[in-house]
């Protein structure tokens, strides 16, 4: 009988968190942007993995919205590169795309919800029309199908579909955000960008919108980048957190790490201020 090998096998190396195993879906490297003498972004790197929610937090003027505009290809940096893992766009710096390619990429693969619904919605068109616009840009030309897909998208955003033909002007702030959300997810985007989506809403409506976002993220595994100055929102939603200050990333890590054991003095200040 062969003697048992009493040597204890090596303890398997601790696995990194599941999210880190996947190839990133979005990579930004060395993003810098100045507006005159003001340096809005000073060489920021961002990595986003499929299915995760990356929270970007920081004070006003820290550069988080500027960074989000870059992600939505609305603006170009002074330096830096941007890659999204999409068919036909591998290893391509998206900042090199021309205006038409950017528009098509935005229309098909990136969804965005703005803090101000006036930026994301056509206020004199119906809510279903706002969602349909995105489908129309993508080339859908069947009226019945447009209606049905708009209805489905609004329902997924927990918008009361009996009001789908009301204009956003006739809706509350929370409802307007749901229409924006429905518009953003209508084409199943690769990445959903959320720019302070609950700012300005009262706490109960805020909770409902966050619930909707969480459910969408759970059911559809949508990759999200959430920008907020509200740590409560970030704590509720984010898997990973990136803390920005004065155009730089001062700390990033898993949400629990950041909130329970902040390392950087600014992060500590933020967390303690929230508590």
């Amino acid at each position: 009988m062969t003697a048992l090998n009493v040597d204890t096998p090596a303890v398997p190396k601790r696995q990194p968190p599941r999210l880190m195993l996947a190839e990133p879906i979005m990579t930004m490297r060395g993003i810098s942007k100045s507006f005159g003498d003001v340096k809005a972004l000073g060489g920021v790197d961002v990595t986003v993995y499929p299915g995760e929610v990356l929270g970007i937090v920081g004070e006003s003027g820290s550069g988080k919205s500027t960074l989000l505009r870059m992600m939505n290809l609305e603006d170009t940096p002074d330096t830096g590169s941007y890659n999204l893992v999409l068919p036909g766009h591998q290893d391509r710096n998206l900042f090199d795309l021309d205006r038409f390619e950017r528009r098509m990429l935005r229309a098909h693969h990136i969804g965005i919800v703005y803090q101000n619904p006036h930026l994301g919605l056509l206020m004199n068109h119906t809510s279903s029309g706002n969602v349909a616009e995105r489908l129309l840009i993508a080339g859908n030309r069947n009226f019945a199908e447009l209606r049905e897909r708009a209805r489905q998208s609004l329902a997924a955003s927990e918008f009361p579909t009996e009001r789908m033909d009301a204009t956003p002007c006739e809706l509350s702030g929370g409802m307007q955000q749901r229409v924006q959300l429905a518009k953003a997810i209508a084409l199943e985007p690769a990445v959903l960008l959320l720019d302070e989506p609950t700012t300005g809403l009262d706490v109960s409506v805020q909770a409902l919108v966050l619930d909707t976002l969480k459910r969408l993220q759970r059911d559809r595994a949508i990759t999200m980048v959430l920008v907020s100055h509200d740590l409560g929102v970030i704590r509720t939603m984010a898997d990973r957190v990136m803390v920005m200050r004065r155009g730089l990333v001062v700390e990033q890590g898993l949400a629990d790490q950041i909130f329970q054991d902040p390392q950087h003095a600014y992060t500590q200040q933020l967390v303690h201020a929230e508590l």
Partner: peptide, 17 residues
């Protein structure tokens, strides 16, 4: 230049709605 006529279609969509 971009043949971006989605909003013209949207006007027709809204009329139908």
């Amino acid at each position: 230049g971009d043949a971006d006529y989605g909003q013209l279609w949207l006007v027709l969509y809204e009329q139908l709605v």
